[in-house]
Design a protein around this nucleic acid. Structure first.
Lengths: 160, 160
DNA sequence: ATTCGTGCAAAGTATTTGCAAAGTT
DNA sequence: AACTTTGCAAATACTTTGCACGAAT
């Protein structure tokens, strides 16, 4: 489903693990498998469910312990839209600079990429005497469809 | 200390409370007083401490119950830089469109404003079929000073 | 008088951690 | 054999909530 194959994801992670003297385990593989089987965002709990569908032996603790590894290796991005739970975005390998728009009305999350934004952020950062590392833009907005019809045709994304 | 006086802040909040049939209380006033006595960011717990310096009777629960009111009334902005605790920014009245740069090395938070950013965000939002509501840009970056000297002269901001 | 707000302490909830057993290299 | 990883359940830590009393309108 993704242009970056799951195999290459696994290779990247294995390289990352190896470089840190960490080990390859069945549970971690199941979690990776689950984490990149979708383009949707998900919570830790949802990832646990998805991982268990692949390997019943995956525990909540392991998911919570593996998520930071995936984030540090750059495969997964942690997002925080203000809810109680962090949500994870598996689409950064394909679209490393994408940002998010969250519909205030229907909670739908729209991903977008914009080179001008990218450029502008870099300029601002340098002007302030810094070197860019991570940039996050989150736009909350009302969808016009909701405004006129009182309802969105787009289903709300499950990710809180 | 701020160009927007604390009195006008109190007026805005009282209007907000009145419009909702909510009451004016000594504790809420103390919390407001504390909340806008500084331009620094703070956590709920820090606001509790500051409020108690003004009125000993302020309880933690009241702070936690008042914060959402301040946020909804538009006086205060809730920020989330990924830590465990939310942090609050009292500078949005004076600079409604400002954004944040967080130094990865020294944790310092730099506020910045940029009209081009503002413009670009609006364009992108409209192009996607939405009407802008809230926009947040967070840039994580390395400060050049840290890079060259291994240390920042700027003290790390206390806000996590 | 009525309704709202408060403090306290208990509850809630996402996440983290200690430990002994099991797995990996 | 040495060291990492796991699952379980207990522990954390921030925030929320129930309740009875007190305060504001």
């Amino acid at each position: 489903m993704s242009t970056v194959s799951r195999d290459s994801v696994r290779e990247i992670l294995h390289a990352f693990l190896a470089g840190r003297g960490l080990r390859k385990t069945a549970q971690r593989d199941a979690i990776i498998e689950a984490a990149f089987a979708t383009n949707e965002h998900y919570t830790a709990e949802e990832l646990l469910t998805m991982s268990r569908a692949i390997d019943t032996s995956v525990s909540r603790a392991t998911v919570y312990r593996t998520l930071p590894l995936l984030v540090e290796s750059g495969l997964l991005r942690e997002l925080d839209f203000g809810g109680d739970t962090k949500i994870y975005d598996p689409n950064f390998l394909e679209h490393p600079t994408h940002n998010h728009l969250v519909c205030v009305d229907c909670k739908k999350i729209v991903e977008f990429e914009d080179p001008n934004m990218e450029l502008l952020e870099n300029c601002i950062t340098r002007r302030l005497g810094f070197t860019p590392a991570n940039k996050r833009v989150t736009i909350e907005a009302h969808c016009d469809e909701f405004q006129s019809r009182g309802k969105c045709s787009k289903a709300a994304n499950s990710a809180r």
